[in-house]
Design a protein around this nucleic acid. Structure first.
Length: 476
DNA sequence: AGTAGGTTGAC
DNA sequence: TCAACCTAC
């Protein structure tokens, strides 16, 4: 007898209810990963995500082997693969952790019905969230659209999780033919552009746990103060680990409670609330599955986005060549490391959607392709929030001024100097707005606008006024 | 999770 | 002169 453990975005052995359920059968357990990106269309993982996935699968396989098991890797139609494996091993059960994005939800429902019809026991388990999206609702039994109310309800329902640790030993998997090597999945880039990712990240469950411990024993104490400064490593950087399920939010909460007691009290409250934003994103994606492409607020259906010059402007934004230091620093950090500090994500998103009036969907798609933590729920929430068309949206008039943001959150210019080294010699006063610097100062800093660094592609004041006028139309 | 433009009050 | 605070957008 065999139980199949179908692993997808729960690439861990700790606090994995699907694994525990498979083990509880007392049968042989076959851990399987099936590569079928087309089943996630139109949101198949982008280049940075695939890089992470490769490393995470390798790490998972190593952890399984240490415990007497191994990861079976297959590719192709997920249902066919599962049926074949069940036939070959005589498996009677399949267990997996739930996903919440529209394509995989639909696929998993179909697969569950088909496998059950074929006589298999088939169970999906909640493991990616503190609360399933349907467990939290307003007094009127509606989904929440405002974060503060959503989080209040979550906090009220919060109980101390009791995550089950990774087992020391696993039953040996049945001997089977077939499968493919990890390398054969072609997840790594053919042209090696991943040096920055390698230098920045350690995917895998072990590193996820280590990172969490390090953060909770260190930076979290100053999180509410330092998390907004992109030049300082004050954030947890756990998002990609969470996205691939290398650590569960239940484990994180449990570690928080272990160290601090009340997770909603200082100093950890601000960090736990960020875990809450992640929950909110999943809540919204589940209840409003059209939002990855459609504005939640219907008034935005005919928002007057810019049409002329958009392609060239979008490319300048993507490449970090807008001439606005804070924006360019962020976009270059993203391209180099597959990640961008959250404060800067808001700045570059506001610049794209408001100063350039380029549709938020274009920005969301670029983030999707370049972020190692690309997550449909969080990405959709973030972009709709910035554009002003989503849940708990920034009021239409909230336009970030990237100069002021730079002066407030990167006051010593450490962040901009790191990612825009051609501006390094400029004094702090002009670092965030080189176009305002006197000519002599630019010359002595070796900056030639339009040559060594771009002239600003738009006037911030004028484009802000244009955005306010455009948003005036949807104010209702 | 904002900005700009004003007023106020401490130097 | 400048930070702190207030308010409209």
């Amino acid at each position: 007898m065999t139980a199949i453990l179908w692993l997808r975005r729960d690439l861990r052995l700790d606090d994995n209810p699907a694994l525990q359920a498979a083990l509880a059968t007392g049968a042989a357990v076959l851990p399987v990963y099936i590569h079928a990106p087309d089943e996630e269309s139109p949101w198949e993982p982008g280049g940075a995500s695939r890089w992470w996935l490769h490393a995470s699968l390798r790490s998972l396989d190593a952890a399984l082997r240490e415990r007497g098991s191994r990861l079976h890797i297959a590719r192709g139609d997920s249902l066919n693969v599962l049926k074949q494996l069940a036939a070959e091993t005589g498996a009677t059960q399949v267990h997996w952790s739930r996903l919440y994005d529209p394509s995989t939800r639909e696929r998993d429902t179909r697969i569950k019905q088909a496998l059950r019809a074929a006589g298999l026991r088939c169970e999906s388990h909640g493991s990616a969230l503190l609360f399933e999206p349907w467990e939290i609702s307003t007094a009127e039994h509606q989904p929440y659209r405002v974060f503060s109310a959503f989080w209040r309800a979550c906090v009220k329902a919060l109980t101390e999780p009791r995550p089950v640790a990774a087992p020391d030993r696993l039953p040996p998997p049945p001997e089977i033919d077939g499968g493919v090597s990890l390398d054969a999945l072609g997840l790594l880039p053919r042209i090696p552009w991943d040096d920055g990712l390698k230098a920045t990240w350690n995917p895998g469950e072990f590193s996820a746990r280590e990172r969490t411990e390090e953060f909770l024993d260190g930076q979290v104490a100053d999180y509410s103060e330092l998390r907004d400064q992109p030049g300082i490593p004050g954030t947890s950087r756990l998002a990609p680990h969470l996205h691939f399920g290398e650590i569960s939010p239940r484990r994180i909460l449990s570690m928080v409670i272990e160290r601090f007691g009340d997770p909603t009290a200082k100093p950890v409250e601000a960090f736990v609330r960020e875990v809450g934003w992640r929950e909110f994103g999943y809540h919204l994606l589940y209840h409003f599955p059209q939002t990855p492409t459609e504005p939640l607020n219907r008034q935005f259906a005919d928002f007057p986005w810019a049409s002329a010059e958009v392609e060239a402007q979008l490319r300048a934004w993507q490449r970090g060549q807008t001439g606005i230091p804070m924006v360019d620093a962020g976009m270059r950090e993203l391209w180099h490391s597959g990640w961008m500090h959250n404060r800067v994500r808001m700045v570059v998103a506001s610049f794209l959607t408001k100063n350039l009036l380029i549709p938020w969907q274009d920005g969301a798609r670029w983030f999707w392709d370049t972020l190692v933590d690309a997550d449909l729920a969080s990405n959709t929430l973030g972009w709709q929030w910035t554009a002003g068309c989503g849940a708990d949206a920034a009021p239409y008039f909230r336009v970030f001024n990237p100069v002021r943001q730079g002066e407030r959150f990167d006051p010593d210019g450490r962040y901009v100097r790191r990612w825009c080294p051609e501006l390094r010699e400029l004094p702090d006063k002009y670092l965030h707005q080189p176009w305002a610097a006197p000519e002599t100062l630019l010359r002595s800093a070796g900056v030639k606008l339009g040559e060594s660094y771009p002239a600003p592609m738009v006037d911030l004041g004028k484009s802000r006024a244009r955005a306010l006028a455009a948003y005036e139309q949807v104010k209702g």
